[in-house]
Structures are given as C-alpha cells and as structure tokens.
Design a protein around this nucleic acid. Structure first.
Lengths: 131, 131
DNA sequence: ATTCATCTACGAAACTTTTCGTTGACAACT
DNA sequence: AGTTGTCAACGAAAAGTTTCGTAGATGAAT
C-alpha cells in the first residue's frame, strides 16, 4: 500500500481552508453556496466547492446530502483544531514558549486592562481544571 | 510599476523561512553553513542557501561578507515578527479573540500551575505598561 | 418539452513554495 | 600546477496550493 485515503489524522489546514473553517465555526453546518456568499466575491463558487471537496477528502469536513446540495460540517471541533494550529506555531516560531506567544498576542491585539483581567480569570479557571 | 523589488514591508515568512528565522533568533547572526547544521540533515545545503538568498531579497534578512562566506542577520526583531505572525493567525483562526488564542496556547503547551502564575505576572506587567 | 438556474464533479492551468543539481570562484594543501 | 573542499549564484524541477472553465445532473418555471 502506498497512499490510499485511509485512517489518518486531520492535517493542518492551509490558509484558504482555514478561511472556510472559520465560516463553518461561526455558522455551523453549511452549504457551499452559503460559505461562498459569506466569503464575498473574492473567489469563484467552484473554487470554494473544490476546496471543500478536497477538505472532505482530507477528512477536515464531512458532508451529507440535503436535497440537491450538500451540507458540510467540520469533523473536529473548533478548539481542537485551534490547538493543533497553535501548537504548530508554538514549536515553529516561539521555541515552545507559551509565554512569548501570549505576550505577542497581547501586543498584537492591544488588549485593554479589562480584557487582561478577563484573561487572568481564564488562567485561574485553567489552573483549577488541572487539579 | 508592477512588482519591482522596491521599498516594501517585510512580508509574512513562509514555513521554511520561519524555521530559518527561528535558528537566527536563537543563535544570532549566522552563516548558511551554521543554519544548515543546526537544522539537521532534513534539507540540503543549497536549499537553505537559496531560501536565505530569497529571504534577503524579500528583506527578511541582511547579510555582510566575512571572508569567503556571508553572515546573515534578521532585519526586524524577533518580537516584531512574532507579533505580525500572531496577528495574522488571530484574525484568520480566532476571529480576533486573543483570549481564545491564549486558551489554545495553554492547552497545547499543557502549562503547569507555576507557568500559569508566571504568565499572570507577565499580564500584570503588561497592564502596568499600559498606564 | 424546452429553457433556465443551481448544483456536483472533474481536470487542468496558474501560482507559490521548496528542493536540489550544476557551475564557477577561491583558497588551502600536496 | 593540480587536486580538493567550501562557498555563492543560478536556474529549473518538483511539490503543494489555489483558481476556474467546462460538463452533466436535476429540479423549477414557462
């Protein structure tokens, strides 16, 4: 056997794929038409269709038929996929240091003191979950 | 004019470029040989050389001659580049929510309580810097 | 029944990124 | 002077990603 479409882990999505995932996260299960509309006129309909077909092959999406069209949904949840992506970035750009990444995120986002407090609350929550 | 190599802002590095940047961040200014050694035998020497030449064209790196070889250094500092990358990811995968990203970073890294405390300290520092 | 709109499927073009083979320069060594 | 090792330069192949044109199916409207 060489490279059949067998049971593999979901690979890291490409840029264009990520744009589609983001819409699916926001809207929930959707048709190609819906995604295409949401994404605006930057890309043609068949481009989106093709990408979603490829994503289905890669197991990033599943689909079911509804009438004449297909409804796509993401296979693994938003948090899981985001963790994958961040983990990858953490290794490649931050030498594995979550702290550096968080600092970068804060200054990129220019968070307000209130938001920082909210983040601190999340940290406590996370710490609580560890025990 | 269409696309001359003029005064442009540094573009987002590709994956392979990022691997090189990471080594330069860690080691400081280095020769191609040094980067190649550090990166192991996964890729050939000329591949790294070519990439670094391209990166120099793109102004991600500058270089100066030292004897027969060239010493490359990054143009903009680590934090700045990391912020760029994170900002991009923030928009594309996290709907602009720094909180989501931070949570993802924590669980990807499986941070310990001590590390979480350290991050909280950084947050306070950051908050202090805002005033 | 013909036309029209909408959908999937397929294939290939266009573009980007990564890889490496080859060449020529240069210096150190014999 | 000839051989050997190391380097930058260059070009182009290979691989990966994104784009869209075209075709065929199906249902709705005339």
């Amino acid at each position: 056997m060489t490279s059949a479409r067998s049971a593999k882990r979901a690979p890291k999505p490409t840029e264009a794929e990520l744009a589609i995932l983001a819409v699916l996260w926001e809207r929930g299960p959707s048709t190609v038409r819906e995604i295409h509309t949401e994404l605006g006129d930057r890309t043609g309909y068949t481009t989106i269709l093709k990408l979603m077909q490829i994503m289905t092959e890669k197991r990033l999406l599943t689909r079911e038929e509804r009438g004449r069209s297909h409804v796509y949904r993401v296979t693994s949840d938003e948090a899981h996929t985001q963790r994958r992506i961040v983990d990858d970035l953490l290794q490649k750009a931050f030498g594995g240091s979550a702290q550096k990444l968080i600092v970068a995120a804060l200054s990129a986002k220019k968070s307000t003191p209130d938001e920082v407090d909210e983040i601190k609350r999340l940290l406590d929550e996370y710490k609580g979950g560890l025990k």
